[in-house]
């Protein structure tokens, strides 16, 4: 597959890749979860990795995050090896997971400011930034609530605020919207995209839902078994989405239909 053209509708996308995977292999015991995967994500781009459950998407994210090391090939993030140069990427990358992963003993705002405190920002400043992000995700009224007092959608919003508050160059989302009900998920996806584009974040999103992938991304990479790329394509204007959906379903294979109705990732 050729390098896809820079998508229209995004302003000033520089050409250099922020994430770059080159012939990456990762196995657990005898099982090659990631087999010879290469792709780039350029600055300011939103790319979705779409694949069935078990395709190896989370493993790819872990490799990008630097919590795992590839068996072969190279992973580069902002010109660093994310595994070896663990500290060098401090504050430049933030993750929002499939579940909210909030600390139950902290209030919404205390959770949102966690990353900032870890980065050593002064308390007052961290609090101010966290409050403003809670505002942005529509949670200004819930800042002082504990996690058990928030709904699932609100928790996921806090989790997003926590990730975005550190102002990372790179945002990684692992099925962050998959566990929410349809309405909440749609609203949150739209909000996230608006924020990501407004602040020109580079985003690598992982999902097993075709709708999520198409709606949010500039570019979709469809992964088959062993994280092999089945299709890599920019997202066309709305009028051509029907065809893209069809192509993706074909690339995902016959189980795609059944996959889509599942709610777990």
């Amino acid at each position: 597959m050729n390098e896809p053209p820079i998508p229209s509708g995004r302003t000033a996308i520089a050409a250099e890749p922020v994430i770059s995977l080159n012939r990456v292999v990762k196995s657990f015991a005898d099982f090659k979860v990631v087999d010879d995967l290469s792709f780039n994500v350029r600055r300011g781009e939103i790319v979705t990795l779409l694949g069935r459950t078990g395709a190896g998407k989370t493993t790819v994210l872990n490799l990008v995050m630097g919590t795992m090391r590839p068996d072969a090939g190279s992973v580069r993030v902002a010109d660093h090896d994310p595994f070896r140069a663990f500290k060098a990427l401090r504050g430049r990358m933030a993750v929002s997971f499939q579940t909210d992963r909030l600390l139950p003993w902290r209030t919404a705002v205390e959770n949102a400011e966690l990353g900032l405190l870890i980065l050593g920002r002064p308390r007052r400043e961290a609090r101010e930034i966290a409050v403003s992000w809670l505002d942005r995700v529509g949670l200004s009224g819930a800042a002082n609530k504990y996690v058990h007092e928030l709904s699932g959608g609100m928790r996921q919003r806090v989790s997003l605020a926590r990730a975005l508050a550190v102002d990372p160059e790179l945002v990684l989302l692992d099925e962050s919207f998959s566990q929410l009900d349809h309405v909440t998920s749609t609203v949150l996806r739209r909000d996230f995209c608006a924020l990501a584009r407004r602040f020109e974040k580079t985003c690598l999103l992982v999902t097993h839902r075709i709708d999520d992938a198409i709606e949010m991304a500039d570019r979709v990479i469809v992964l088959g078994a062993n994280a092999r790329i089945r299709l890599e394509t920019t997202v066309p204007p709305a009028s051509e989405l029907g065809r893209l959906r069809h192509d993706i379903e074909t690339a995902l294979g016959p189980e795609a239909e059944q996959e889509r109705s599942q709610t777990f990732g």
């Binding site: 663990f86 600390l103 902290r106």
Partner: peptide, 26 residues
């Protein structure tokens, strides 16, 4: 889950104790 979450911010060992382990063991 929570360990991975806090690790994603690349904290020092002391910060892991302070923000995660200490409150967890109270």
């Amino acid at each position: 889950d929570l360990v991975d979450m806090i690790e994603s911010f690349r904290p020092s060992r002391w910060q892991v104790v302070r923000y995660l382990i200490a409150p967890h063991i109270v």
